[in-house]
């Protein structure tokens, strides 16, 4: 009985109910009846093919970042830098895409953008990885700082014509890049009305591959060993520095690829705030999932649904979208607070 009460799913459900109640109160505070609010929320999550598609796209971005986070986490490293890696991956992805000729075919353009994004994010994360491996600097602090520097790189890229800004023709020219050539854009999957793109497939594939590598390959076991004890792993002949830098690079790479995907999704431009804070949300997804890739996909999906539901809540029911942010953070805080309780149950 006590074991059941302490099961993470049960605790998560209780947390969800509490957070949902808070959400209804917020809706009521804004003068919207619970029924109307719930309707608008559900409509925005899954009501139309469009809603489903954009929820899935958001979920996929979060899942990519969280899957990468899980790789580094297995090696004992907490990658707080998803946001910066996302930004830099977006910049490198956009740079590569814009360098392609207009008529580039999709089978060349899309991989080029994705690989460039992955490489950019991986390189960005490797700065923290190398500092950790060579100088022992805490990756929590360096990746945190690199977020802001990455955001600066992005801002610089979209503000300077010498870099990626579209040609300035008038005072109204927005600080953003020119649109990517059609061949560099992520293809849509599914029906015409749905904006869901290839990123959904990529995210599921990334999660599957990460799960397979971590659980069933020597590399996965080596990462796990390094995560538990770098000293013992070194004694046993593992390349600890290589594994640490590699783990963090994969985390950054997947976040960077997610950034490139965002740029290669409508409206196909690199703009200053294209990241929407997904890097931080992805980190939270990764930490809550505690190493389980199933949990990564499930939590990312939940967050994707909530985010898009919240946008509709504002549009259709006049409840500030911020209230969904409140609900989402309450949910996370409640789960984080209850971990001491669920951990005891697991013992």
């Amino acid at each position: 009985m006590i074991a059941a009460v302490r099961h993470p799913v049960f605790v998560g459900a209780v947390a969800a109910i509490v957070a949902a109640c808070a959400g209804l109160l917020l809706a009521a505070g804004a003068g919207t009846s619970p029924a109307v609010a719930v309707d608008a929320l559900v409509e925005g999550m899954t009501g139309t093919p469009y809603a489903i598609g954009s929820s899935l796209n958001t979920a996929a971005v979060l899942a990519l970042i969280a899957a990468g986070f899980t790789v580094a986490y297995r090696a004992g490293l907490v990658n707080v830098g998803g946001e910066g890696q996302l930004c830099v991956g977006g910049v490198t992805g956009a740079a590569a895409g814009l360098a392609l000729p207009q008529g580039v075919p999709g089978w060349i353009g899309v991989p080029v953008v994705l690989i460039a994004g992955f490489a950019g994010g991986a390189a960005w994360a490797s700065i923290a990885g190398l500092l950790k491996a060579k100088r022992g600097t805490s990756e929590v602090i360096t990746t945190l700082l690199l977020n802001f520097v990455g955001a600066g790189v992005l801002a610089l890229a979209v503000h300077e014509e010498a870099l990626l800004r579209q040609p300035v023709t008038s005072a109204e020219t927005l600080p953003q890049s020119a649109p990517l050539p059609p061949g560099a854009r992520l293809p849509l999957i599914g029906s015409i009305e749905s904006p869901a793109t290839l990123i959904v497939v990529l995210a599921v594939a990334a999660a599957l591959i990460v799960a397979l590598v971590l659980r069933h390959t020597p590399t996965g076991l080596r990462l796990t060993a390094v995560g538990h004890s770098p000293a013992a792993s070194a004694r046993l002949g593992l390349g600890v520095a290589r594994l640490e830098v590699g783990g963090l690079a994969v985390a950054g790479g997947l976040a960077g690829a997610a950034g490139a995907c965002l740029v290669a999704t409508a409206p196909y431009v690199l703009a200053e705030h294209f990241s929407s804070g997904y890097g931080f949300t992805g980190l939270v997804v990764g930490l809550l999932a505690r190493g389980s890739l199933t949990a990564v996909l499930a939590i990312a999906l939940l967050f994707g649904l909530l985010t898009n539901g919240g946008i509709n809540l504002q549009l259709a029911a006049g409840v500030p979208a911020a209230s969904v942010q409140v609900v989402q953070s309450l949910l996370v805080l409640l789960i984080a607070a209850s971990m001491i309780w669920t951990r005891k149950g697991a013992r």
């Binding site: 076991l221 796990t224 060993a225 538990h228 004890s229 000293a231 013992a232 792993s233 004694r235």
Partner: peptide, 9 residues
């Protein structure tokens, strides 16, 4: 515990 083995594995 620190260098000889990985106690968790």
């Amino acid at each position: 515990h620190h260098e000889g083995c990985v106690p968790e594995l």
